[in-house]
Write a protein that binds this DNA or RNA. Structure first.
Lengths: 248, 248
DNA sequence: CGTAGAATTGATATATATCAAGCCTAGTGG
DNA sequence: CCACTAGGCTTGATATATATCAATTCTACG
């Protein structure tokens, strides 16, 4: 990459080279020094509602541990899943007092929290932090727009395949425990929530799992741990090809 | 708003108070001074393809005049509309050399263009510019996520109503010319492209215009200039209520 | 082992896509 | 100035994907 930013200080982005990153690569030791103790760690149990759409956001923070989901609700109760967050994703928007999303812990979660003021200070004082945050938000934007193609233009099988691949990329594969080489992905959400992300019903999600199973791509029967037999094929169905040209 | 950023220098965001904004509120006179002549204006005819998805982006720039659309294509030719751009929206991503979208001029368009290096310099040197850009991208992100609810959870009538309201908000109402008080919105896109934005076919778009017409909400017969009889009702159908709680 | 929530499966309904025809409308050239 | 044309729009008939409603069945957990 030879962009203007890259030429200057993009090395400082993904992981701060000036320090051994404490907590994670957003709040590294350099950032912590400027922050000077103005922070706290909050913990949430699985299922805990961290923020409510439209209400005052309780804090700004970066996830240290666990998985979180953000959803938007319509007036009549319809729900659209928006993002799955994992470390070091940011919860909250420094430009808004109110949360735009309902934010729910999907596992045991820890968040490194700072005040909006402290966040503003970091953004203002630290080129490194500012760049890293901009980088995160630009890639959030790209992912959200790619997701539009999923909801607008893909069939239910394609959508489900897309979600499984993205979850695998985001949360990683699980190790089976027994010494086999099989690929497992743990989906941290119910079929209903999968449906909320994919704009379809729980029943259709279930049926599409069955279809993918009959095709020999994966197995998910009644469980949230998915065994993947043919990851390449799954990527193809999803319309994702990370080995070559970026299709999505 | 009493966020950390607002406390500091958000006044400089939406319109620079230090200068009389030349061109627009992104490239104000202050920015121009730092830029020191390193820019050019590019013009495009309606229908011109400004950038192609996956190929090297020709420039970074801010729209000065006209309307532009960004679309994502799938391998098999399906197209998803992503954004409608109008002044002073930014074309291009300072962190990528390649365009993520196919970018098309919908009218006569002028773009204030600078090099990626110059863009990086502005981002680095000018807190004002940097904040404004972050602000733009955070609101792009919010709009993209709200659009997810449109594609994932709304019926075709609701989707169409949503699009009309958003276009009206973005591009503004047209004045009828004759002295009537009627509201007109000029849609800068064909039914097919409307469909690409809404994840539906041209035919369904057309049918839903007819439905809205039968309901007495608007009239669009065969034309891109839409007459709106009941804007409030349109907003209600769209699930947008800008006079009160933010629903979308 | 029993229970409750989650997941699957089936039958049917419905919204939207697809295919196909015809109709407007703006722009062109005689 | 008017008829012609091409692209865009509308409308209809039909097909199809997905939703909805309704039982079971599975799984994790007490």
């Amino acid at each position: 990459m030879a962009t203007g930013i890259a030429d200057r200080d993009v090395r400082l982005g993904r992981a701060c080279l000036n320090c051994s990153g404490q907590f994670d690569d957003l709040f590294c030791a350099c950032v912590m020094k400027v922050l000077n103790g103005e922070h706290c760690i909050r913990r949430f149990e699985p299922g805990a509602v961290i923020a409510m759409e439209g209400l005052k956001a309780p804090f700004l923070g970066s996830i240290v541990k666990g998985v979180v989901c953000q959803e938007i609700s319509l007036a009549d109760g319809r729900v659209q899943g928006v993002t799955l967050l994992s470390p070091p994703d940011v919860i909250g928007n420094p430009l808004h007092d109110n949360s735009r999303y309902t934010v729910t812990a999907l596992s045991e979660v820890e968040v490194f929290c700072i005040s909006a003021n402290a966040f503003g200070k970091l953004l203002y004082d630290l080129p490194l932090f500012r760049l890293r945050f901009l980088e995160m938000k630009l890639s959030d934007l790209e992912r959200a727009r790619n997701w539009l193609t999923v909801l607008g233009r893909r069939s239910s099988t394609e959508r489900l395949a897309y979600l499984v691949v993205r979850v695998a990329q985001k949360i990683g594969f699980s190790t089976p425990g027994n010494g086999t080489a099989d690929l497992f992905v743990h989906l941290p959400i119910t079929r209903e929530r999968i449906g909320a992300f994919l704009g379809m019903t729980m029943e259709t999600v279930s049926r599409e799992f069955t279809h993918l199973e009959r095709k020999g791509v994966l197995s998910a029967r009644g469980s949230r741990v998915i065994k993947i037999f043919d990851y390449r094929r799954l990527e193809t169905i999803a319309g994702i090809d990370d080995d070559g040209g970026t299709i999505d």
